[in-house]
């Protein structure tokens, strides 16, 4: 459903993506791992059209991702994104954060959008927090609101960029739990993460990125326990010994 063909991206002279190929299939959970600076966020941002790319192509269900074309907005509602730092709208309640897109972007009726929004907050275990502003929520709660906000667009897939890296350790579990439930419900997900246990348990496949290339990919279990490439092995040794 998400197709990457020889994607190249430069920031000035710095080539950050050096030809990425790959595919995320319907219903699949793909975890993207790799060292800091290897280009993981950049790849996600290119798929979401937050960043342009110079060469190659990205398609979503056959439609080209072109940041400069108005069609990008429809693509963004079909593949939404969850950010490391939540990026909730601070001047809106949890429920308003969730209903903002459905009401103002998709033109849904307010009542329906709110009903759906409450359902999603419930599903995230935040039914009681609908009227609360983000500043009064913990990091874990904020990230779950952000996931509900992404879900409210009824997307075909969700991109997660290190969704638990900004959280206190004791709050990581609740967010990963919510993501596991999503995965079990069949949501297509591309997850940048440093949580190897999550990748192994929930991920169908793992992509390992290094220096702007996908160096190794395969079934999660296999890549994480029996990597074929030296660079993957080094990386895993470093993260797991931390």
């Amino acid at each position: 459903m998400i197709q990457l063909d020889n994607v190249h991206k430069k920031f000035g002279n710095l080539e950050v993506l050096k030809g990425i190929d790959g595919e995320i299939r319907q219903g699949e959970v793909v975890c993207l791992i790799g060292a800091s600076g290897s280009g993981k966020s950049t790849l996600l941002r290119c798929i979401n059209g937050l960043e342009s790319y110079e060469e190659g192509q990205i398609t979503i269900d056959g439609k080209l991702v072109d940041r400069k074309d108005p069609s990008i907005r429809a693509l963004r509602t079909s593949v939404t994104m969850v950010f490391q730092r939540f990026n909730l709208f601070p001047h809106r309640t949890a429920l308003e954060n969730v209903t903002e897109g459905p009401i103002y972007v998709k033109g849904e009726a307010r009542r329906e959008a709110e009903e759906h929004g409450r359902e999603l907050l419930d599903r995230m275990g935040l039914g009681a927090k609908a009227e609360t502003y983000p500043t009064s929520l913990s990091g874990g709660q904020q990230q779950r609101v952000a996931i509900a906000r992404a879900l409210a667009m009824r997307p075909k897939a969700i991109l997660f960029d290190e969704p638990t890296s900004a959280l206190d350790p004791e709050l990581v579990g609740e967010v990963l739990g919510a993501m596991r439930d999503l995965a079990n419900d069949g949501m297509t997900m591309l997850v940048v993460t440093h949580e190897m246990a999550f990748a192994r348990e929930v991920g169908d496949r793992v992509l390992f990125m290094d220096g702007g290339l996908i160096v190794e990919e395969g079934p999660a279990e296999r890549v994480l326990t029996d990597p074929q490439e030296d660079r993957t092995r080094d990386f895993l040794r470093r993260v797991l010994n931390k």
Binding site: N48, A74, R76, F83, R85, N87, V105, R149
Partner: peptide
């Protein structure tokens, strides 16, 4: 800047 990205990622256009 995260606010801009969040708004864009749910499909908002600039004026909205």
């Amino acid at each position: 800047k995260g606010q801009i990205e969040a708004a864009q990622s749910i499909g908002m256009k600039w004026s909205l």
